[in-house]
Design a protein around this nucleic acid. Structure first.
Ligand SMILES: [Mn+2]
Ligand SMILES: [Mn+2]
Ligand SMILES: [Zn+2]
Ligand SMILES: [Zn+2]
Lengths: 159, 159
DNA sequence: TCATTAGTTGAGACATTGTGTCAATTATCA
DNA sequence: TGATAATTGACACAATGTCTCAACTAATGA
């Protein structure tokens, strides 16, 4: 029924492909964007903007080390807007990004270790119909995250 | 089917009742908490912690005016934990609180004016079963907010 | 009523996560 | 190769919390 994606086992998107997507959307192909994309692709789990800033600051490539913090924030926002990255709300409420296949997705996040499972099933669809009919709101968007503990982080049940 | 609650038309909880709840949960009944509860009850729509801080700073009652900012944050957190307030994610991503009837609820928020409709229908319940079976996660919690435009904020359709 | 004591408070420093400005730089294209 | 508009980096600034700690106080029962 549903499609589940453990992020580490997906056929990953490539840097050149992302460059093409950016270009198609009218964004320029710049050095900083390339380094940010490369660094983002290193991750198979959610990462925060500050995390990426730190990683780039300590990059082997000296040029990448000089990237401005605002540039990272701006670029991640762009990458999310063109559906290359997806924004995930962490259990603590702060934002992170994940590389994944495009499309409408939600996430199941382990509160303990951060492991993320993305899924395409969206139970909100039918709710939206009900809400629209009953409230006359025009519904534009929704936010759904599921939190739990992954198998690896669960306590052993036996002695 | 679903129960909808426009916040302004609910039979409101009273301050004494809230005091009782706090007491039942082992919290002391203090002056600052009383003033914060009173101020929270003035609202029938989501309010932020900073909003309440500002309102209390300008309170007629001089004593209330001296409340510390941290105390407001701490108390709102407590009130949410005992189900007197409910935390709502605003369209901009920041947190707010609403006074409302207890129980598991989600919110439909107008991105334009902030009007909030709470509802008890939770489409995540069945999803949780699927996710549990398919991923072996132990699911603890979820976050669901729906955003849209309320009737009052919608553009007139005719000329 | 009066100590005792643990919960609570206020002040303020500090942290995190962003956003806004602006001059300098640079990718893109004619 | 220029012209032009997008992009960048530095940095100030803002919003939203968190943490510490000494002072205070509600609750308890002697
Ligand atoms: Mn959805
Ligand atoms: Mn729910
Ligand atoms: Zn885990
Ligand atoms: Zn509205």
């Amino acid at each position: 029924m549903s499609e589940f994606h453990a992020n580490s086992s997906d056929p990953r998107i490539t840097a050149p492909h992302i460059q093409a997507i950016l270009s198609q959307h009218g964004y320029r192909l710049t050095g900083p964007r390339g380094w940010i994309v490369d660094q983002a692709l290193q991750h198979d789990r959610p990462f925060t903007a500050e995390q990426l800033v730190a990683e780039l600051r300590d990059h082997q490539d000296g040029r990448a080390a000089g990237i401005g913090r605002a540039t990272v924030y701006r670029t991640l926002e762009i990458l999310a807007s063109v559906d290359v990255l997806s924004r995930v709300i962490q259990p603590n409420g702060s934002a992170a990004y994940v590389v994944e296949a495009p499309g409408h997705r939600h996430h199941l996040v382990c509160s303990s270790c951060g492991t993320t499972i993305s899924f395409t099933a969206c139970p909100v669809d039918t709710l939206v119909n009900t809400l629209t009919a009953d409230t006359s709101f025009t519904i534009h968007d929704h936010l759904l995250e599921v939190f739990g503990t992954c198998p690896d982080c669960q306590e052993p049940a036996d002695s």
